[in-house]
Structures are given as C-alpha cells and as structure tokens.
Design a protein around this nucleic acid. Structure first.
Length: 112
DNA sequence: ATTATGACTTCAC
DNA sequence: CGTGAAGCCATAA
C-alpha cells in the first residue's frame, strides 16, 4: 500500500530535510542520528543524492560536520552556495560561516 | 551473496 | 591543530 519506493529511509530523510527552517543548516550525522542510524551519515548522503532530484528537499541546507558544502559539486557548481546565500546564510571558502550558530539539530529541536 | 562506491564521522598519531 | 586510516549504512553491479 504505501511502499512507494523500496525504502522508507529516503522518505524519512526527505521529511527531516524539509523540516530544516530557512536560514538554518544541518549535518548528515545529525539527520542520520535522528533516523536512528547514528553511523549512517553516508547513507543519508546517499538519500540526499536522490533528494537532489526533488525540489521539495532543501539538500543545500545539509552539510558535513565541518559545515563544508560537501555536495556542492553534486549541485552543479556553485548552485548550492547561491541557494545558501539566498537564505541569508554566509558561505566562505565552500563552508558555512558561523556554522555553529546556524547549525540546526533535529534531535534537539524535535526532542526538546 | 560479495565487492565496490559514496554529499560522512570519529579515533589515533 | 592537521593528516591518515578505519568504521558504518545503503545502493548498484
């Protein structure tokens, strides 16, 4: 009935990524942890790889633990940076400025 | 079922 | 603090 794709994992990642407020960013590990796969940061990146094909998923708000636009290359050049700057997010040297300040932890915000 | 790859994370030196 | 290596999850071949 609701299998849609073969994995709900992608849906979970989509939902969580969509929940990221504008002007905020998150990390793969945080999302993976929120999904119960604390060590599935790579799996999240894989899911976001599909998410990149979905306009409803702001994957540009998701970066690695260092706040670096790891997937910038997958966005097609500086597209990811432009999207972040469009959200009032400062990007310098392919990494988020004040990442700690803009960091949005789903586990904290959703579990608080 | 096994091997290889990938938008990662963490530990060790 | 910087670099290197290992680990873990999911997908594709």
């Amino acid at each position: 009935m609701k299998k849609e794709n073969s994995s709900t994992f992608f849906e979970d990642v989509y939902e969580l990524t969509k929940l990221i407020p504008k002007g905020r960013v998150s990390s793969y590990g945080a999302i993976a942890r929120a999904l119960g796969k604390a060590r599935g940061a790579r799996a999240v990146g894989w899911a976001l790889n599909n998410a990149a094909l979905v306009p409803d998923v702001p994957a540009h708000r998701v970066v690695n633990s260092k706040g670096i636009l790891s997937g910038k290359n997958h966005f097609g050049g500086n597209r990811m940076q432009e999207l972040l700057e469009a959200e009032d997010i400062a990007v310098k040297d392919d990494k988020i400025v004040d990442f700690e300040q803009l960091y949005w932890d789903p586990n904290v915000e959703l579990f608080k």
